[in-house]
Design a binder for these strands. Structure first.
Lengths: 357, 357
DNA sequence: TTGAAAGCGCTAACAA
DNA sequence: TTGTTAGCGCTTTCAA
């Protein structure tokens, strides 16, 4: 017996030619029957389709693409899927693509340009239809050139070398709101722990922090500002965030509140605060960035900048699909800023006058 | 000027033939030069490679595959990437594949067989080299047949229809440990909220719970056992977990402790417990399943069954790569059980005699 | 050391 | 209504 599941992996896949020979007809008739070409007689079509179903025929995409069939693959390039923001993006994009029978190739860069280039090369070789990417701080020129061939959209971060299509949030404003919130609660010694200014969003967020202080007439102390790798690389994200918080707290004029500038860094800061057994908001007020599941139940709840993840991802994906359908859309730059908001929970209070430890 | 990034997406990609014409040589020479064939003279090779670099030539994968080149694409089929367990798997697998210049196609099924079949069809059409999948409870026969063509490994869940290669954990033992831990703390009215028994892991975990009670000589009350969709579908996971906890607590002989049987369900249970302002472990002891970031800082810390995610994913990926390199490995079944463990934190205490509310 | 030609599986123009 | 043929871009004989 040759039941289902018996086909050995070694077995050559069934081709249109196999079907043709089995039925004693030509390959083109098979092709037409399978594509429901009206010119084919009903009985022939039925016979072909029946055999195709029986033999589990699946047309070879490579062959189709060589004949000019459009690619159904979209690349998603992110620093790290474990960051829940990017996870959500992958989910939303995958869902959107799935409904159109497109496929999602997931690529992680760890914010490394070499890795990024590698992925872009492979995507281009695979003839991807389009790419959604969170670019690294300074993409390799080769990356830039290769992407010149492929429709693409930038997500969150925006670098001028790539196509002027971008979906993101108002980073400056978001961190500014976060800082304003702490200022309004009476804090003046406010620390900032965020991503390096090399990354575009890093610079914008840090400036949001600085501008909030400046406009409030509060002196910004350089030692209260800590920047490092935003994602989860070797020394990145959580590790950096944790170390930075410890540093800030060991300062003579330690801050009474801290704003963070990336999700992974926020994780690290929370981990350090937990380890140090800080009483938040009594010992320290905190405003996070991003909204991981769990931020809501950290201590009395983390007050944090919430990003409209799903909207962003869906919008970005939908626009890319539109672009694939009509390449002329690439002509005029499309930038979309989705609004985020401060989610108020329990990690912000008035500055305590009690000295620490 | 025609600098980098100027190439319009419309532009046809550079082919080996283009290179050949530019240089006034044949396509075959170009191909050989690019693959560092020793028969080609050094100067020719240099000229070809220089031009290729200049024009940003990238060989067409489809054409290569038509010539029999092995596929570099591996499919990963999971219920939902937002589940941090699967996120980790995607990350680990992606990393492993990246080092070998392979690509990862991410597919989400939401535990739906139709969706699963769709993805498998598309993967087979794309000539994937292999597939890692968390199968749905009862894969479509067509899915089974299609996968018969492709090397694949099952992850976490195991269904007999597919290839006998599986990487997972000892579900039964894990939940049994969790339940034993509660029994040891003195609980006898222990509730269970987990995935349906239709999913293989669901059955094993529930049996772990039942067997622990039985062996302890504790009567298992049917109304203390709640099963539903394990992942995040419409009515699944978090929503179900939350509703189930509320139900359990409204029982006349409500449980003094609850064990959960899936990460998403655990999330829901935690959300409900938070919303109900339960004092854990005073009002209720809890042992979770899986270890999302954040479980550690939920309340006094959630005692939970921790899975060796990275090990599992890496092991699974490495084995698949081995299989791709040597298809003969498919001959003998490979099942690998990675050990998990109970991570003790603060959500388990002795049963309270205080009546509730 | 290089070139010419065939062919992978499919689709589409052209014939019949 | 169906068949024949050419060709997508690449690799790989076979010739030179």
């Amino acid at each position: 017996m040759t039941g289902a599941g018996t086909a050995r992996p070694g077995a050559r896949a069934t081709t249109a030619r196999d079907l043709a020979e089995h039925l004693g007809i030509s390959v083109s008739t098979v092709g037409r029957a399978l594509s429901d070409d009206p010119r084919i007689s009903a009985p022939t079509r039925a016979r072909v389709q029946a055999l195709a179903a029986e033999l589990g025929y699946v047309a070879n995409r490579s062959a189709r693409m060589m004949r000019g069939a459009p690619s159904t693959v979209v690349g998603l390039i992110v620093p790290d899927v474990r960051n829940s923001f990017f996870t959500s993006v992958a989910h939303a994009l995958g869902h959107l693509l799935g409904t159109r029978r497109h496929q999602l190739v997931l690529c992680e860069t760890a914010d490394d340009r070499r890795t990024e280039l590698q992925h872009v090369r492979d995507l281009v070789a695979a003839q991807v239809a389009g790419v959604v990417l969170v670019p690294s701080s300074a993409p390799d020129p080769e990356t830039v050139r290769l992407l010149g061939t492929v429709p693409h959209v930038q997500l969150m971060r925006r670098v001028p070398e790539l196509a002027p299509h971008w979906f993101g949030v108002d980073d400056h404003d978001l961190v500014r709101q976060a800082t304003d919130h702490l200022l309004a609660a009476g804090h003046t010694r406010i620390g900032y722990v965020g991503g390096t200014a090399e990354v575009p969003t890093g610079a914008a967020r840090r400036d949001g922090y600085r501008d909030a202080l400046r406009d409030a007439g509060v002196a910004a102390l350089p030692e209260h500002e800590r920047v490092g790798p935003p994602s989860s690389t070797e020394q990145g994200g959580p590790t950096f965030g944790a170390a930075a918080l410890r540093d800030l707290l060991s300062l003579p004029d330690r801050p009474t509140a801290v704003v963070t500038g990336s999700t992974q860094i926020t994780r690290g800061v929370l981990a350090a605060a937990t380890a140090l057994r800080l009483a938040v908001p009594h010992d320290l007020s905190l405003v996070g960035f991003g909204d991981e599941p769990g931020f809501g139940w950290w201590g009395a709840g983390l007050t944090t900048v919430t990003l409209p993840v799903t909207d962003l991802a869906t919008g970005c994906g939908a626009w890319l699909l539109g672009l694939l359908a009509d390449p002329d859309l690439a002509a005029d730059p499309h930038a979309s800023v989705t609004r985020g908001a401060l989610t108020l929970r329990g990690s912000v209070g008035r500055p305590s006058t009690v000295s620490w430890r």
